[in-house]
Design a protein around this nucleic acid. Structure first.
Length: 218
DNA sequence: CCCTGATTCGC
DNA sequence: GCGAATCAGG
């Protein structure tokens, strides 16, 4: 797969967005993680925090030695961590006890919950509109108990057995999940089922009689 | 083991 | 220039 201008642009963009070389390689397709890394370096893209980094040029660095800052080496920029801004929750509900504020008046107001957790205003209510609820943190849905601990479709990757167990649509449908026989999509046992040597015709077991007597002959 | 990026070196 | 092989840390 050639490094066309377009693919190089994609690589630059994804690399600068902080995607890992593996992710970029998978996204581009047709190239390995190493190819992406090699190309990125040849393009002079900014180095990323690497587990290897230093430690090879200095054969021996006593821990007590003066920490020489190595002016030659480019200053190591902080990793571009896209720190998610902590959503500052409007502290309306978190009001600490305020002496000047009397206890909240009882509000047996009947409200219903709209989609997304919005409080519906009662009909005819004259107060200011209720501000929308703050965005809620999304958490992964719990898997159904039938497939808890089983290998689901989303768990599949190149190193676990993809032999299906059960049938799609059934609540407990899942996949084998054992380590694959390297180079195959299945584990050794399921490779044995998936790939069978073809026997000479005379050695093949004749098919069992069909339960309904076989196709009608006229 | 898995992952990561850096480097090397034959092509 | 390319990228597999290798290294080495997390």
């Amino acid at each position: 797969m050639a490094w066309t201008d377009e693919r190089i642009e994609q690589l630059k963009s994804m690399w600068e967005k902080g995607m890992t070389a593996s992710q970029i390689a998978e996204e581009l397709g047709g190239v390995s993680r190493n190819a992406v890394i090699g190309k990125a370096h040849r393009l002079g893209l900014q180095a990323r925090p690497s587990p290897v980094r230093e430690g090879k040029d200095d054969g021996v660095v006593p821990a007590a030695a003066a920490p020489e800052p190595r002016a030659e080496t480019a200053p190591r920029p902080a990793p571009p961590r896209p720190a998610p801004p902590a959503p500052e929750r409007p502290a309306a509900a978190a009001q600490p006890e305020s002496p000047a504020t009397p206890a909240a008046p009882p509000q047996p107001q009947i409200r219903s919950i709209g989609p997304g957790g919005f409080l519906r205003q009662a009909p005819g209510e004259t107060s200011a509109p209720i501000p929308p609820a703050p965005p809620r943190r999304l958490v992964p849905a719990k898997p159904s108990p039938e497939i808890a601990g089983k290998t689901s479709l989303l768990d599949l990757n190149e190193r676990i057995c993809k032999w299906p167990l059960g049938h799609p649509g059934e609540p407990d449908f899942h996949f084998c999940g054992a380590p694959v026989n390297p180079g195959f999509p299945y584990c050794v046992a399921h490779c044995g089922q998936a790939y069978q040597a073809q026997l000479p015709r005379r050695d093949r077991r004749p098919p069992p009689p069909l339960p309904f007597g076989g196709p009608r002959v006229r």
